[in-house]
């Protein structure tokens, strides 16, 4: 029974991740990423990590993917154009080296852990919010603070990168297209 559920979600994750890397329309690719993330969250649940599974759904599909969709729609990205003539050999070289990499990784994991008996999932008490919080706020206090600093730096960097240097909402050539005194509108397509 558990094997069937594992195979179901593993296949779901594999197929939807293939769609992520092959689909030319970024919106479909992003929605497919949501499916991958939910499948992996289900695998987290099967591995006995309910807190991580919740975080995965909340942070990844709730915040990061929404950010992606927002940027895709803000920039009005169309489907990717067809590959330039020179990139054909690059693509095959990339796929070949990725397959070699996959073979190495699979061989490594299989040799290291192929025969290991399955361990029982961590107990409720081991993965409870209290235990994880205690680990986080005692043993990993310094990384936790560093992560907070990193997020703050990320917020500052993102705001300063995404705003125009002169503080206006539209570019000067767009403003020329409007009548003088026309309120600048950010949603106008360039």
């Amino acid at each position: 029974m558990e094997l069937a559920v594992f195979i179901l979600f593993a296949l779901g994750a594999l197929v939807s991740s293939l769609v992520v890397v092959t689909h030319r329309n970024p919106v479909y690719a992003t929605m497919s990423l949501v499916l991958t993330l939910v499948c992996v969250a289900a695998l987290f649940l099967m591995l006995g990590a309910p807190f991580i599974a919740t975080l995965q759904v909340l942070i990844y599909t709730g915040a990061i993917v929404v950010l992606f969709l927002f940027v895709i729609m803000l920039l009005n990205i169309q489907r990717e154009e067809h590959a330039a003539p020179s990139s054909g050999i690059q693509r095959w070289a990339a796929i070949f080296s990725a397959l070699v990499f996959a073979g190495l990784l699979l061989g490594l994991f299989w040799r290291a852990h192929g025969g290991d008996p399955a361990q029982p999932a961590l107990t409720e008490e081991q993965v409870s919010l209290t235990t994880l919080a205690r680990l986080l706020f005692t043993e990993y206090m310094l990384p936790f603070q560093a992560i907070g600093l990193l997020l703050l730096a990320g917020v500052v960097a993102a705001t300063s990168l995404a705003r125009r240097p002169d503080g206006r909402l539209t570019s000067p050539d767009q403003e020329l297209a409007h009548a003088p005194g026309d309120a600048p509108r950010a949603e106008e397509a360039p």
Partner: peptide, 17 residues
Amino acid sequence: MVPASWYMLLAAVLFVI
């Protein structure tokens, strides 16, 4: 019980994709 090595193999394949 699904062995952990299967999860590792799945993770490797996802990483390569």
